[in-house]
Amino acid sequence: MATYPEDCLYTREHEWIRVEDDVGVIGITDYAQEALGDIVYVELPSVGDHFSQGEPFGNVESVKAVSELYMPVSGEVVEINEDLAESPQLVNEDPYGDGWMVKIALSDPTELETLMSASEYEEYVKEEREKEK
């Protein structure tokens, strides 16, 4: 069963962000990795790239599917998870921990207010699953 850490905020496209001191760590949710299946490749931006909220910043690939990654909030990339190049399965194994993707310096922290809390996201996922059936 999917999990929803309380210290993260969530997007409708199934990214999460965890903010500490104006730096946001971003990844995809447990639900998303489960839906994608075994992840074989993660394409990430370069440090220094700027993205606005909702803009695609990379791709995550399974054997037969590609999903775009969308920025939860605007900011500049300050670090990327280099380990994913060698071990993309970290996204499957630990989506909220070792499977993180990028860290960004937030340019407008007020955008965080547009995101979902853990309980709101859990509700949203439930609706999504209903639709699938």
Binding site: Y41, E61, S62, V63, K64, A65, V66
Partner: peptide, 12 residues
């Protein structure tokens, strides 16, 4: 590496 190909990535 089929995700490069048209039958998965279509216009991209």
């Amino acid at each position: 590496l089929a995700t490069r190909e048209q039958y998965i990535r279509r216009e991209k």
